[in-house]
């Protein structure tokens, strides 16, 4: 029963980036894979690490450390690539570790907070206060948008 979702609950994939814990709506996550050889694509945005082969599909990989200006980012055994689907495109995001999937009730999510470190508020949908930790909930579409608000796809 405890695992069952109530109406006002959503499931989130929780991962670690530096010292912070982030959450992504599970509906957007396709899979979580171990680190791969990434092919650098010269001349792209600084936070695009490169591209990888995901079962025959070439997909870009974003470096969230660089994107959010979070320290760390060394590749370890626990480093993972979270593959998400955003607006019909598959995209990989490098995270330090993926810990779990949690149910987060709507009422523990706060819209804004001033207790955040490096990450800009505009990339968030909110912050969830769980018993033992704070989970920063990401707004993927905004994460993948450039600072000036245009879509990355327009970037040349």
């Amino acid at each position: 029963m405890a695992e069952e979702l109530t109406v006002n609950e959503n499931q989130f994939v929780v991962f670690r980036l530096g010292r912070e814990t982030y959450g992504l709506d599970i509906a957007t996550v396709l899979e979580i894979i171990t680190m791969q050889t990434i092919t650098e694509v010269p001349g792209t945005e600084y936070f695009i690490e490169g591209v990888i082969n995901l079962r025959g599909l070439v997909i870009p990989v974003f470096n969230l450390h660089k994107r959010f200006n979070v320290e760390g980012g060394e590749i370890t055994r626990s480093t993972r690539i979270v593959v998400v689907e955003v607006e019909g495109n598959n995209i990989g995001m490098i995270v330090d570790a993926v810990s779990e999937v949690v149910n987060i009730p709507q009422d523990v999510i706060e819209q804004t907070s001033n207790i955040l470190g490096g990450i800009d508020e505009e990339y968030l949908t909110g912050v969830a206060k769980l018993e033992d930790k704070l989970v920063i909930l990401l707004d993927l579409v905004k994460v993948l948008r450039r600072n000036d608000g245009t879509m990355l796809e327009n970037f040349c």
Binding site: G43, N89, I91
Partner: peptide
């Protein structure tokens, strides 16, 4: 294969 729209057009590639 295409690089996909999030990478966009890359000079020389």
């Amino acid at each position: 294969k295409s690089l996909g729209k999030y990478v966009g057009e890359v000079q020389g590639v």
